[in-house]
Computed example of a mutant assay.
Amino acid sequence: MKFKNVKLAIGASLLALSLVACGGSGNNAKGGNDQAANNTQNTANASKGAEAGDLDKLGQIAVITREDGSGTRGAFTEITGLLEKNGDQEVDNTTASASVQNSTNGVMTTVAGNPSAIGYISLGSLNETVKALTLEGVEATPANILSGEYKLARPFLLVTKGEPKEGSLEADFMKFVLSKDGQAIAEEEGYVKNEQAEDYTPGNVSGEITVAGSTSVTPLMEKLVEAYKKVNSGANIQIQSNGSSAGITAAAEGTAQIGMSSRDLKDEEKDKVQGTVLAQDGIAVIVNKDNPAEDITMEQIKNIFKGDMTAWGDLAK
C-alpha cells in the first residue's frame, strides 16, 4: 500500500503554511507584518501597565521543560532558536536550572501547582488546569496554525520501516487514521486535519501490532485505536508511550510496527524509517492560571528558556 498521495497532499499544505508564515511578498506581506507588529506592541503596552506590578510579585521564573528525546522538546527548541549549530553539533541551550518532566501531564501538573512556572505542551493536550499565552498577539488555535499565524507548530508523524504490507493490520489501521473518519477525530481533539483525506472501507483484518512513541501523540492515538476497534473487532493494538526518539527507534528495529513522533525525522533517521503526517499540532506555552501574563514573544521565550531572563517582572519591561 502506498501513502504517497497523502504525503504529497499534506506536503503541499505544509508548503502553503510555510509561505503564509513567511509573510508572502509585496503589499500583503507588509500589511500582515504591520498588523502583527501592532498586535505585539499593543499587548506589550498592556503588560507594562496593568500587569507589571503583579508580575513582579511572582519573583523568579520556574522553567519547566521536557526530557531529552521528547519530540515536543525537539520541536520547541528548534522553532524558538534554542537549538543552535556549534560546528557539526547541534546544541540545546535550555537552561540547566530548568525542571525536567518526562510527560505532557507532568509539565501541566507542575505548572498548575506553581504560580511562577512556565512550560510548553501539545495544544491538543491543553486543559483548564493551566493557561496558554498568546504568541505575539496570536492565540494557539487550529485555525491559526492552519493559516500560519501561530508560529509554534509541528507535525505529528506515523513512523514505519518502509511501506506497510498491503492487507496487513498495520496498513489497514494507517488507512483508517488517515481517512476522513480518523481525521475527524483528530480535528475533534484540537489538531489540524488533512483536508484531502479519503473515505475508509474496513479491511476486516485481525492480529496484533504495537504503536510506540511520543507522549504528545498518545492521547490522540488512544482515541483513534478506540474508534478503529469498533469497526475492526479482531484488532489488538498495544500503545507504548515512551517518547518520540524511542518510538522512531522501535519502528526502525521492528519492536513496534508504528512509531509516533511529535517532531520531524532527523536526516540520519530518514535512512532507516519513513514518516507520514497524521495531523498538525501547535505547541502551547503555558503558565499557572493565577499568572497575570497574557502574551509572550518568540524572543522572550528563547530568553526565558535559555536562562537569560530570570524574573517575571522582566517580561513587562
Rank of each mutant, 00 (worst) to 15 (best):
G11M: 11
A12L: 15
A12Q: 13
S13L: 15
S18G: 12
C22D: 15
S25C: 14
A29T: 10
N33C: 11
N38F: 14
N39I: 11
N42S: 14
A46T: 07
K48Q: 11
K48R: 13
D54W: 06
D56I: 11
L58P: 07
G59V: 05
G59P: 03
A62Q: 09
A62S: 12
E67K: 05
D68F: 06
A75Q: 01
A75R: 03
E78V: 02
G81W: 10
L83I: 02
D92S: 05
V100N: 03
S103W: 02
N105S: 13
G106H: 01
A117F: 12
I121M: 01
S122F: 03
S125G: 00
E128R: 14
L133G: 00
L135H: 07
A140N: 08
P155C: 06
T160Q: 04
T160D: 02
S168M: 02
D172R: 08
M174N: 01
F176Q: 01
D181E: 15
G182K: 09
Q183A: 00
E189F: 12
V192D: 04
D199R: 08
S214N: 05
T215Y: 00
T218D: 12
M221K: 07
K223P: 00
K223A: 12
A227C: 06
A227T: 00
K230T: 04
V231H: 05
N232Q: 06
A235V: 02
A235L: 07
S241A: 15
G243S: 09
G259D: 01
D264Q: 13
E269C: 08
K270W: 05
V273F: 06
G275Y: 00
G275E: 05
A279L: 11
N291W: 07
N291Q: 05
P292E: 03
A293T: 07
D295F: 09
D295E: 12
M298V: 15
Q300D: 13
K302C: 10
N303S: 14
N303M: 12
D314E: 15
L315V: 12
